[in-house]
């Protein structure tokens, strides 16, 4: 408990120092349209709170949709990859290709196919989330030790039993590693999508749209607020999945020990 408090205190000190460095830029005379101080940004957050929250909501909705879809589709693809080796050899390079293609280059294409709106934005998030899910889950499904398979065969287990009682539970920590990676980048994907798709609803837009708008209007203070909100959102996504992972796996999985590491 004492260690917890110590960590919290240290983090707060770091935050204070960072704010101080930021504010000192203002004191040194950098103009506010280049670098608005923390107080000005705070003011922008308070003044435009409803629209900021609305943007956050729209972006998280698209990111969550994309992430959710990537989990469903990614696990299905991983199951197929684990089941058929030839399929894996044939298609695995393309999942890596999907990861290396810059998402900003795909986003306009997606927009052309799916039109303005939520669907496009979620699709961009989906595309960026998919490869880590596929790669990690496939790895988990196929990396089962041979002795475990022998054990199941000695009991005449059916392929379905091997899948349900051995491969899937064994793959679960790997799947969560994939989800954790994808959760953070799903927000990036959604914002990238919004940069191109404009607004996902008529007359209002997510973080990406608002960032473009604010920079166009030279509202640097609000732009700062949006950037902070965007990273806070990615942070929340990441920790939400980490908590879920801990909750589901801490009973048995070594990496999810309930005690705090030294």
């Amino acid at each position: 408990m004492k260690r917890h408090l110590w960590f919290a205190l240290n983090s707060l000190i770091v935050l204070g120092v960072l704010l101080l460095i930021w504010q000192s830029g203002v004191w040194l005379g950098v103009p506010p349209y280049m670098l608005p101080g923390p107080l000005v940004v705070g003011e922008a957050v308070v003044n435009r709170f409803p629209s900021l929250i609305r943007s956050l909501w729209l972006t998280s909705e698209a990111a969550a949709l994309g992430l959710g879809a990537s989990i469903v589709v990614g696990v299905a693809i991983a199951l197929a990859f684990a089941q058929w080796r030839w399929l894996r050899c044939l298609l695995f390079p393309y999942t890596i290709l999907l990861q290396t293609v810059p998402i900003v280059a795909i986003a306009p294409l997606v927009l052309m196919w799916a039109g303005n709106g939520l669907l496009s934005v979620a699709l961009v998030a989906f595309i960026i989330c998919l490869p880590p899910i596929i790669a990690n889950t496939t790895q988990g499904l196929i990396s089962v030790e041979e002795n475990f398979l022998h054990l199941f065969l000695m009991h005449k287990a059916t392929p379905v039993q091997v899948l349900l009682h051995l491969r899937l539970p064994h793959a679960l920590p790997h799947l969560f590693t994939g989800i954790r990676i994808s959760a953070g980048i799903s927000v990036i994907g959604a914002i990238t999508g919004e940069l191109f798709a404009g607004s996902s609803r008529v007359g209002e837009g997510g973080l990406g749209y608002s960032i473009l708008y604010a920079s166009g209007q030279l509202e640097t203070d609000y732009l700062f607020a949006l950037v902070l909100a965007a990273s806070a959102l990615g942070f929340c996504f990441f920790f939400a999945t980490m908590f879920l992972e801990w909750y589901l796996l801490h009973d048995w999985h070594e990496a999810n020990r309930s005690d705090i590491p030294e």
Partner: peptide, 22 residues
């Protein structure tokens, strides 16, 4: 087997019952 090959997501009880369950 040489190593105990226990399924880590199952309790002792569930591991012992694995064969019968299958």
């Amino acid at each position: 087997f040489q190593d105990a090959t226990l399924l880590p997501w199952r309790t002792v009880e569930q591991n012992v019952g694995l064969g019968l369950e299958l």
